[in-house]
Each structure stands twice: as C-alpha cells, then as structure tokens.
Design a protein around this nucleic acid. Structure first.
Lengths: 238, 238
DNA sequence: CACCTTATGACAACGTCATTGACGTGTGAA
DNA sequence: TTCACACGTCAATGACGTTGTCATAAGGTG
C-alpha cells in the first residue's frame, strides 16, 4: 500500500458507489459539515460519514489520508466560508471588527466542527488569503511591520480562541448546555454574601452576562487599545 | 444499578487493588494529569488510566460517573493549581495581569488536559473561588457592578480561549508541532510578493512572532483598554 | 475475636471506533 | 474491443467506553 490517496487534480475514473453516489473531496467535506451540524461532533465518525455518503466507510480513505487530514480540510473550509464575499472598506477599525465577527460567526454556525478545527494551522489557500487580508488592513492603517505582526497575532488568536470557546458551549448536548446555564443562575446565585460577597453582589448581572458571548466586548477593547497605539497624531493622519 | 459512585465524604472501606494501591478521587485525578502530561491527551483512556493506577479499568467507575465527570474534576484541579498561593496586592492592573498569566501558565503546564478542560464550567469550589477573586479585584478598583461583570467575562474568556489555543499547539505530537512551525517559515516565507504582498513584506517578523504565544500582548491590550474605561479622573482617583 | 453486611475491586462481555490488506469490478484510454 | 488499474467493497484487527455480575475483604457490631 504505497499511497491510497490520489490527488484530486489527477482523478479520472469516478466510479459511483453501490448506491450511485459519485464521491469527491468536496462532497465528503460538505457531507461531514452537514453531519456535524445535524448530529453533533460525536456523530463525525468514518463509519457514519460513510453511511451518510452512501458508501463504504473505507472509501473515504481514498480521498483523505486519515481523519486528521479530513479535519484540516474542514478547518480550511470554515475559514473560506468566513471570508466569502468580504471586501476592505478602507476604515481599518471597521474592517477588523467585521473580519473578527465573521470568523466568530462562521465558527458558531458549525460549532461542532469549529471545536475540532479552530486550533489548527492549515497553511492552505483560504488561510493564507485571510492572513494576507488582515495584514493588509493593518499596514494600510499605518502600522509598521513589527507592530502590525504583533497586532495580527493578538487579533487572530483572540478571535479563534473565543470562537473555539463559544463553539464548545454550543457543542454540548442540549441537556448539558442547559445545565451549564443553570450553574450561573442557581449555583452562583445562591452563594452567601459572607463567603462570596462579590459574586453575591453581582449575581443577577453575572447570570445575564454569562448567557452571551464575551467576544464582541473583548473585541472592542482590543480595537480600542490598538487604536491608541496607532502612530501619528491621535490615531491616523490622513 | 442504582448508583455506582459513592460520594468521597462517606467512603469508609478502602480496599486496596490487587496490586496494592488504595484508590481515591484525588489519586485518580493526579494520575490522570500525570498520564496526560507524559503520554499526551490521547493516552487518557479509562483502560490506560486503570493500568497506570494498578487497578481494573472498571474500578474508576466507582469514583466517577463517566469520563466526562472525571474531566470536570481535572478542569477544577487545574483552576485550583492556577490560583494556589495567590493574594491580591491592591494594584488592580497588576493583580489581573498576574491572574491571567497564572491561568495561562497552569494550563500550559498540562496542555493535553487543558485542551479537554478549558471549555468547561465546573461550578465547583476552585472555580467559584477564582470568580470571586477576579470580581473582587475589579470592584475594589472602582468598577460598578455591570461594568465589572462585563470586564470579568471578557477577561476570563480571553484567558481561557488563549489557554486552550496555545495548549492545543503544545498538545500536538512533536512531529506535527515542528511541521506547524515550519509552515510559517517555509510556506508563508515563500509566498510571492505579487499575490501576497503584505505577507511577503513581513515574513521574517511573522515567522518569529508566531513562534510565541499572542496572549501576553493581547492581555496588555485588554488591560490598557479597561484602564481607559475606569470611572473617575483619568483612571483611579486615590 | 467472630460474624455479617456491603463497599468495592475484578472479570467478562457488548457494541462502536479508526484503520488496513485483499479483492474484484467498472472506467476510460488505447 | 481490449486492458490496466483506480477505486469501491469486504472482512478483520485491536482499542475504546461502559455495564452486569461476581467474590472478597474491610470495618462495624456483639
């Protein structure tokens, strides 16, 4: 078994499966995302993916080296969907905000997949395009290369970190998800003021706040601090 | 099978295993962390944990309902270790910085476990103590309850998000980890200036920057923005 | 010290998982 | 029309989490 996987470009014979489906990397990726969206991350197994495709599970290994290879393809697909149709407006702050929220949104749309994919560096086309776009926004804003790179790093990892964190919450089974929310209402709501005065004093706000994502606010904080560091008179000369 | 797990408090008979080990929740948690540190997250299986303990795998189910229950215990243990020995100094900014870096450090020390645990809300003792401490720092700094809660949320989730992200990188098998670093040097280093001008212009800095964690810088940005929002004359009156 | 209850460790089994080697069939080129 | 081989299928392997059952030793009781 030298190499089971044939590069997509040089595929010629496309034999349909017993159930009449013609396989391809794209079809497998799409089906995997759909599967994960419908039945959760734990439904993403080679066997079930095979069933969903109408093919023998082992057929997938003709297109992906292993499940990790498939996972990287899912990750890059998500990045691609986040970027789809985006154009810079020239307002660096609005552009960064939009990119950040798009990444977050794209991952929330497939929480189960995001959970698996957010931590990976794919180095594939969609990813490099995104990196180029963000660096472009920062450098056009007037940041010198070293600062632009530092801000890029903080910005991207903040977005991905929150995306993964929030995806994880959404990815929990419905019951566990409700239980998690309950913790803030019940558990934290009942802590006595003498042992936990600050929690007791803010319990209602806490319960309300922890229901949403902390990302939009954290993103604003980051953008604010970055703006304060822009070289030139009071943030942008032109 | 009403309930297999007996609460730790009311355990009396501690029968040693065939290999002479006396089990307990704490011993199991410690062993699990050691296992994960030595052999990676994928080594954390009930069967191998049993072997590492010198016990039959099924004995673990006398102490934890299932692997998820065990995972939450690991998560709370990590939070506890991060907090261990911390005392507020009265300087809110230094205190938050210290807490943030401690969380990050504690999780990096057990990347494999962090990866599994960072997204969970345990609601257990160590966690509530940490929440109380952070809210205390913010309220003593002068933030009114609603703002304190918002900042708390952004601060904690940013810390956990980065912790998980950076842990994921450390958690990769050594080979994949080296490959990931290589992507920035080789892959991104070779992109032509006409298709990816901004990457090409910053490639060396990019390769150097992406080698470290983006967290410390992102944390400074957050603290800076938060300081600017402190009520009172130019951030803190006293 | 002997008895009894039962907590708790051990064993065996089930169904599912990713992965792989061997097989044979239908495709597309010649 | 032929023919090589790409690729779908089959079967098997070893590891996984979890559970029902059994048996034994710990520890309270007298």
């Amino acid at each position: 078994m030298a190499e089971r996987v044939v590069p997509e470009r040089q595929r010629r014979r496309r034999r349909p499966t017993r159930q009449g489906v013609v396989l391809s990397r794209q079809l497998i990726v799409d089906t995997a995302l759909r599967l994960v969206a419908q039945h959760g991350a734990e439904a993403l197994t080679v066997r079930r993916l095979g069933a969903a495709l109408g093919a023998d599970p082992s057929a997938i290994y003709r297109y992906f080296r292993n499940t990790d290879d498939l996972l990287l393809a899912l990750a890059d697909e998500l990045i691609g969907r986040a970027q789809h149709g985006w154009r810079p407006t020239g307002d660096w702050r609005a552009d960064l905000r939009e990119i950040g929220l798009r990444i977050h949104r794209a991952y929330q749309a497939h929480p189960q997949a995001a959970l698996l994919a957010a931590h990976r560096t794919t180095g594939r086309t969609h990813e490099t395009r995104a990196v180029e776009a963000i660096l472009g926004v920062l450098r056009r804003a007037g940041f010198p290369a070293p600062e632009a790179v530092r801000v890029y790093h903080a910005f991207v990892d903040q977005s991905l970190g929150f995306a993964a964190l929030d995806a994880a919450a959404l990815a929990l089974p419905a019951a566990a998800q409700a239980a998690d929310r309950e913790v803030w209402q019940a558990d934290y709501g009942r802590l006595p003021a003498d042992t936990h005065p600050h929690i007791a004093a803010t319990a209602p706000q806490l319960a309300a706040e922890m229901r949403r994502s902390g990302y939009p606010y954290a993103l604003e904080l980051l953008l604010e601090a970055v703006a304060a560091r822009l070289p030139g008179p009071a943030g942008r000369a032109d």
